[in-house]
Computed example of a mutant assay.
Amino acid sequence: MKIKYYLPALLLGAATMHSCKVMSPKAYNALIAGRDSLQNRTNSLEAELARLQGDTARLHREMAGLQKNYNALNTSYNTNSTQLSKLSGDLQKREARLREVEDILRKRDEATNALKNKLQQALLGFQQSGLSVDIKNGKVYVSLTDKLLFPSGSIVIDDKGKQALKQLAGVLNKETDINLAIEGHTDNQRVVNLGQIKDNWDLSVLRATSVSRYLTEVEKIDPQRITATGKGEFQPIDPANTPEARSKNRRIEIVLTPKLDELYNLINPPAAK
C-alpha cells in the first residue's frame, strides 16, 4: 500500500486532537514540517520501489535468456556428445580395419620377397644371359631378354629359353597362389620380312603367347593363372635410340602377383544377405 494515502488521516487526527485548543504558529509549522518530511520519505520509498520492480523485471528477463542459452547449450552438448561417441566408434572400426589391411600387405610383402629369393636361386645360372628378378609395387618381375628365349625375329622358343622357363615353372608350380602376367615387349625398329607378323604389336603378342603355351602345355601351369599381353614398343626400359637400349627393350616380362582375395574382401566386403 502507498504511504501517502495515510497522510490526510494523520493530519485530520492531529487537527481533531487539537481542535479544543488553538495551535501556536510554532506547533503548526512543526506539524507541516513533519508532514513534508513524511511525504518526501514516501516519495523516496516509492521511487526505490519502482526501481526495484524494474530491476526485478530486468533480472527475470536476463534469467530467462540465460536459461534459454543454457538449454540450447545443453542440447548442443548432448548432440555433440552423441556424435562424438559415434565418431569414436567409427574410428575404432576403421583402425581395426586398417590393422587388418596392413597385416595382409605385410604378409604379401614377406611372401613376395620370399618368392623373389626362390626365383633368384632357381634362375641363378641364367642371370648372365639377360635374366633379372626384381620387385616393383608389391609384384615380382622376371625379365628375360629376347636373345635368351628366341632367335632373331622368331616367335619359337629355343632350347636355352625352354630351360630357363622350366626352372621358373619348377618354382611356380609349388606357389599356386601366384598369378602370372606374361608381357611381350619389342624395340622401336619396324618389323620387316616376317611373314604373318605385320608389326611390333604382332611380334610382342605372339612371343607372349608362345611363352604362355609352353608354360601351360609343357610345364603344366594352370592356364587360369596366366594372362598374355603384347605391349609392342611402347613401354621401353631404356628410351635411348642405341643398339644397347634396343636390346634391353626386346624382352619378355613375367609379372608375378600374389592372389589378394583376402585383401579384396577386406576392401570390398560382401553385401549382407
Score class of each variant (00 low, 15 high):
2 K>Q: 11
237 I>S: 11
36 D>L: 03
47 A>F: 09
260 L>F: 03
130 G>I: 00
127 Q>L: 02
52 L>Q: 15
207 R>F: 08
197 I>E: 01
84 L>H: 13
121 Q>P: 05
46 E>T: 05
185 H>D: 04
127 Q>C: 01
24 S>L: 03
36 D>C: 01
154 S>G: 05
57 A>F: 09
230 G>W: 12
6 Y>P: 02
7 L>M: 10
9 A>S: 06
101 V>K: 04
242 T>Q: 08
82 T>F: 03
14 A>F: 02
190 R>F: 11
227 T>Y: 00
5 Y>R: 11
149 L>V: 08
18 H>Y: 02
158 D>M: 03
75 T>I: 09
247 S>V: 02
33 A>S: 05
218 V>D: 14
88 S>M: 06
273 K>S: 14
152 S>R: 11
221 I>Q: 01
24 S>E: 06
185 H>Q: 03
182 I>L: 10
83 Q>I: 02
79 T>I: 07
41 R>W: 14
22 V>D: 00
57 A>R: 13
232 G>C: 07
228 A>S: 13
20 C>E: 15
81 S>L: 07
91 L>S: 12
90 D>Q: 13
106 R>D: 12
189 Q>W: 04
91 L>R: 15
88 S>A: 10
176 T>S: 12
136 K>R: 13
51 R>T: 05
145 T>P: 01
142 V>K: 07
104 I>A: 02
133 V>F: 12
190 R>L: 11
236 P>Q: 15
254 I>M: 09
223 P>W: 09
15 A>P: 04
89 G>T: 08
193 N>E: 07
202 D>N: 14
120 Q>I: 05
217 E>S: 10
94 R>C: 05
59 L>Q: 15
259 K>F: 00
51 R>F: 12
260 L>N: 12
233 E>Q: 14
199 D>E: 01
193 N>I: 05
273 K>E: 14
249 N>Q: 00
254 I>V: 07
136 K>M: 07
34 G>C: 04
253 E>W: 04
247 S>F: 06
125 G>V: 09
239 P>F: 11
7 L>A: 00
3 I>W: 14
232 G>H: 09
199 D>R: 07
95 E>P: 07
191 V>D: 02
76 S>P: 06
3 I>Y: 15
156 V>P: 02
45 L>E: 08
73 L>P: 00
183 E>A: 04
82 T>E: 12
6 Y>Q: 06
241 N>M: 08
222 D>C: 00
179 N>T: 04
35 R>L: 06
267 I>Q: 14
81 S>A: 08
261 D>Y: 12
273 K>M: 11
228 A>F: 08
263 L>S: 09
50 A>Y: 10
105 L>M: 10
85 S>W: 01
217 E>W: 00
62 E>N: 11
65 G>M: 14
48 E>N: 10
32 I>P: 07
22 V>A: 08
102 E>I: 05
158 D>N: 15
62 E>C: 04
15 A>Q: 06
70 Y>A: 09
111 A>Y: 12
220 K>C: 07
174 K>H: 13
269 P>I: 02
109 D>I: 07
100 E>W: 10
209 T>E: 13
242 T>C: 00
157 I>P: 02
232 G>F: 12
270 P>I: 01
149 L>Q: 03
142 V>G: 01
195 G>R: 06
35 R>M: 07
123 L>C: 01
51 R>C: 05
94 R>G: 06
228 A>L: 06
207 R>G: 00
268 N>K: 14
231 K>A: 12
172 L>T: 01
137 N>A: 09
57 A>N: 10
